[in-house]
Amino acid sequence: GPIITTQVTIPKDLAGSIIGKGGQRIKQIRHESGASIKIDEPLEGSEDRIITITGTQDQIQNAQYLLQNSVKQY
């Protein structure tokens, strides 16, 4: 399918649970989903961080599912 980009906003407090120790968790999510995932640095004074996910519809759905699971375990 076509490559698309979607953005998800997360509270910055949850960023740690998604990134994992030394970036292990986010690497695993990238690997498992096949999507490209970029977590922006939090904006000055903002409570949120923006996650940019790029890939096919399937890859993005996979990545979103894995991201949600990471947050739930936290």
Rank of each mutant, 00 (worst) to 15 (best):
K38P: 01
P11W: 01
P2H: 07
L14F: 05
L43H: 07
Q57W: 02
R25E: 14
Q73I: 02
G1W: 01
K38A: 12
G22F: 11
I10Y: 13
T56V: 04
T56Q: 08
E41M: 09
Q7S: 09
T6R: 10
L67N: 01
D48N: 04
K27G: 11
E44I: 12
A15Y: 08
L14Y: 02
Y65W: 06
R25D: 06
L67T: 03
R30A: 14
K72F: 02
P2W: 04
K27H: 08
I19N: 08
T52Y: 07
I29W: 14
I37A: 02
D13I: 09
V8C: 03
G34S: 05
G55E: 00
E44S: 10
K27Q: 15
L66H: 03
Q64K: 13
K27E: 10
S36E: 11
N69V: 10
I29Y: 04
T56R: 12
I39Q: 04
R25G: 11
N62I: 05
G45H: 08
G22Y: 11
I10Q: 02
E47R: 06
L66V: 05
I4M: 03
N69R: 12
R49I: 02
V71M: 15
R49H: 11
G34P: 01
S17P: 05
D58N: 09
G16Q: 08
G16T: 14
G45Y: 12
V8T: 04
T52L: 13
Y74M: 14
P42G: 10
E32Q: 04
S33P: 00
G20Q: 14
D13E: 04
Q61R: 11
S70H: 15
R30M: 15
P11T: 05
I29E: 01
G55Q: 00
D48R: 04
G45T: 10
K12Q: 11
L67K: 00
I51A: 13
A63K: 00
E41I: 08
G16P: 14
K38V: 11
G20H: 05
D40F: 03
T5A: 03
H31V: 05
Q28D: 13
I51T: 07
Q73T: 06
A35V: 05
G16M: 14
V8G: 02
I60L: 09
D13G: 09
G20P: 10
Q59H: 05
K38C: 12
Y65V: 12
V8S: 02
L67V: 10
A15P: 10
L43I: 08
R30I: 09
I50T: 11
D40I: 04
T6F: 01
A63T: 04
Q59P: 00
I19K: 05
S46P: 03
Q73K: 09
K27C: 13
K72V: 06
D58G: 10
L66I: 07
Q61L: 04
I60P: 00
R30W: 06
T9A: 11
I3L: 08
S46R: 04
D58C: 09
H31Q: 10
P2M: 14
D13R: 07
G34Q: 08
G20T: 13
G22M: 14
I4L: 02
I18Y: 10
L66A: 08
E44K: 13
S33C: 06
Y65S: 14
T9D: 08
K12Y: 03
D40T: 03
S70D: 13
D40A: 08
N69W: 02
T9K: 14
G45E: 14
S46L: 07
R30F: 04
E41S: 07
K12L: 04
V8Y: 03
T54L: 03
S33D: 01
D48L: 07
L14Q: 12
Q68T: 06
S33M: 01
H31K: 08
A63C: 06
R25S: 06
E47T: 07
A15E: 05
P2S: 15
E41D: 05
S33E: 01
T56S: 10
I10P: 01
L14C: 11
A15T: 07
P2I: 15
L14P: 14
N69E: 13
I10W: 15
N62M: 08
Q57R: 09
Q61N: 11
I19V: 06
I51P: 01
G20F: 05
I29S: 03
T56M: 06
I3V: 03
L14I: 10
Q64S: 07
K27F: 08
I51Y: 11
G20V: 07
L14H: 12
I53G: 00
P11H: 02
I50W: 03
K21D: 15
R49Y: 14
S17L: 09
Y65Q: 14
I10F: 08
V8A: 02
I51Q: 01
Q24T: 10
I60K: 01
I39R: 01
Q59D: 02
L43C: 12
Q64Y: 02
I51S: 02
Y65K: 13
N62H: 15
Q28S: 10
Q73D: 13
R25C: 09
P42M: 07
R25V: 05
K21M: 10
S17V: 07
T5S: 10
G34Y: 01
N69A: 12
G55K: 00
K12T: 13
A35L: 00
A15G: 04
I53S: 01
H31P: 01
D48G: 09
I26G: 06
H31W: 08
L43T: 10
R30C: 12
V8F: 03
T56F: 06
G55R: 00
T56G: 07
K27N: 12
Y65F: 11
T52R: 11
D48A: 05
D40H: 06
Y65C: 09
I19C: 04
G1R: 01
I60Y: 00
G23S: 12
I50V: 14
G20C: 11
G45M: 11
P42H: 15
E47I: 12
T5K: 03
I19S: 09
I37Y: 01
T52M: 08
T5V: 02
T52C: 15
N62D: 10
V71I: 06
S33L: 02
Y65A: 15
K38D: 14
P11F: 02
Q57G: 09
R30L: 12
I39T: 10
I53A: 01
Q59N: 14
G16D: 13
Y74I: 09
S17N: 09
G16V: 07
Y74H: 15
N69Q: 08
T5M: 04
G1M: 05
A35K: 00
L66K: 08
T9F: 01
L66D: 12
K72Q: 15
T52N: 05
G22I: 15
